[in-house]
Design a protein around this nucleic acid. Structure first.
Lengths: 344, 344
DNA sequence: CTGAAAGCGCTAACAG
DNA sequence: CTGTTAGCGCTTTCAG
């Protein structure tokens, strides 16, 4: 009786026969179309409730040409930064009745374009988060992904809002902070080579070096996680630097942990700074000096940009630039007497 | 020429006319049906490539009655535990060509059921993560959500696999560990009142108390985040306990941070244990003794259970129970001379 | 081996 | 105000 449709689930047709009307009328009632006679509407609603009818979103999507779903592509869901963006995005989108489909590329940049395309086709719009693909590839696929919002990446392709954090400014602020504390030998523990945000940090450091030729800045290879920082203790000590700019908070925490194991006092012997101000940063020992990125807000803003694109709204200020805020805590302090390199 | 369909995007019909065949044939070729003449198939493929044709998944979903998407409902996407489950689930599902739709209930338990229903209708199956709704409600809606997999929650409804972590055993192991170090006054910093996993911990502690009547176990109200731990310093000190079982690692870290600010030495004065073994736990100062939950594996297993349900496979061992593993680090140590309560 | 046609569940013109 | 009809884009019988 109730379940007659092929899928075995209750469809609009079941409600229609039960209420003794056409499915068009049922559709009207379900969509709040008030051109329906109140009595009939009530009968339809009663039938719907009785059958526990819920419209099938797939049929609806096909008819309307929209899915009420957006996609987000991230390079690594394990990264707190992307988690925070996802959360902000999800929350903001949910308020407008949109769901979020996630696609994790697991840092495999060769799969990113295909992944993005697939995700896009299932959704009404896409957020591409710090894609690792080349500029050329990004520019090539960007138009086919529209509506598209980019985070921490820009492209020459037209009509693509881009939300970027000014990592270059942030790292300069941190470096200035250390110099203000008397440090003259700094080291930068870099992030992943392909990372655009690492590139922005490097540019910022170049500007800093131009302004402070007397300060020695050593570049050290790195990565983006705890283990990177923990494993960098030797090279950090060998550099002779007293102020260490870690790629991000995770790296900084790993480094502090490694230094602690060696009996090196932070900030007594060495000052350490992070980047991002993840929630954990204020609970490390010592608490971490870092540059705070309003990351959840970024996710929310990404949704607003995307929403404007989906609604084809006119859009005066597409994209935006986010300034990190210096967050001075206990992991940075006055420079000690200069140390000498201790190789081997 | 190319784009003639109503949506403005290239559809199967465009490829069909370009290749001079019917859309049925295009469909066959796109789906790797080998009953198509090789020459025609080649022509179709060439047309598809030239037009950059990508099948519309919505139309496909409607025809096939499946979306190749699963949903996950979590109470709070900010919680590292749920993030890890999401990651494990997403990774495992992706390997089988499935995408993940997320639904964050933001701890609003009244919205959970509706959210779950909506998510389910867009997907081929659902993972409900530690739902906060009542047992009665869960049991009522569970059948309508099938295929459904439950995490850290069980239900009497039939055919619902349930993956649960044995928090009761874990907390007992931690308590035994502390007692083995000579602690006789313990305190449990509880989690959110509605949390099922908190209930399991409480049951475990009851069993522990029955076994160790000489040990004093104080119950303290709490929560599940840093601030809970940080704010609990006073009540912890007032309890006079020397061994503190925190609800989870986050709470433990907040507590350690607060104790450090008061000059209380961990583990010299007070031993602290967490729960979960989140990645940060091995990098705190001191490193955190905790009970490790194989959480990413849980996400992967959730997918396998769900996949079996979706494929209607016979399924000998639905669900499973995960035993936490004691991870002894530096935040727990021998008990000092007994302290006295220092109220006020 | 291929095309015509039906149908997945829904919405929206268009008649009446 | 309501029913009929025609799609949305795709898969899949069913003839040929």
């Amino acid at each position: 009786m109730a379940r007659k449709s092929a899928t075995g689930r209750i469809g609009i047709a079941d409600v229609a026969v039960k209420a003794g009307v056409s499915h068009a009328t049922v559709s009207r009632v379900m969509n709040g179309n008030f051109t329906v006679d109140p009595d009939i509407a009530a009968r339809v609603r009663a039938a719907a409730v009785e059958l526990k009818y819920q419209p099938n979103p797939v049929g609806r999507s096909l008819a309307l040409g929209k899915t009420d779903t957006i996609g987000i592509v991230v390079p690594d869901l394990a990264n707190p930064t992307f988690q925070a963006i996802l959360r902000g995005l999800s929350r903001a989108a949910a308020e407008d009745g949109y769901r979020v489909l996630i696609a994790d590329s697991f840092e495999v940049s060769s799969e990113e374009a295909i992944l993005a395309g697939e995700a896009r086709r299932r959704c009404d719009g896409l957020v591409l988060c710090a894609p690792r693909m080349s500029d050329a590839e990004l520019e090539e696929i960007a138009p086919s992904l529209h509506p598209l919002v980019l985070i921490n990446r820009t492209t020459a392709a037209a009509g693509i809002p881009s939300l970027v954090v000014d990592y270059g400014q942030g790292v300069q602020d941190l470096a200035e902070h250390l110099v203000g504390l008397g440090h003259t030998r700094l080291a930068f523990l870099a992030g992943p080579a392909g990372s655009a945000s690492n590139g922005l940090r490097l540019e910022g450091l170049e500007a800093f070096k131009a302004r402070h030729p007397q300060v020695d800045v050593t570049m050290l290879d790195g990565g983006s996680d705890f283990d990177t920082g923990h494993g960098a203790v030797d090279s950090v000590l060998a550099s002779g630097a007293t102020g260490i700019l870690a790629f991000n908070d995770l790296v900084a925490m790993g480094l502090m942990s490694g230094l602690h194991e060696r009996g090196v006092d932070v900030p007594g012997d060495i000052s350490v700074t992070g980047f991002d101000d993840i929630p954990f940063a204020r609970y490390t020992t010592p608490t971490l000096t870092t540059a705070a990125v309003p990351i959840a807000e970024l996710g929310g803003q990404a949704w607003r940009e995307l929403r404007a694109l989906i609604r084809k709204e006119d859009h005066d200020a597409p994209g935006g630039r986010y300034q990190p805020r210096l967050e001075i805590r206990a992991s940075s302090g006055p420079a000690k007497a200069p140390r000498t390199a201790t190789h081997g």
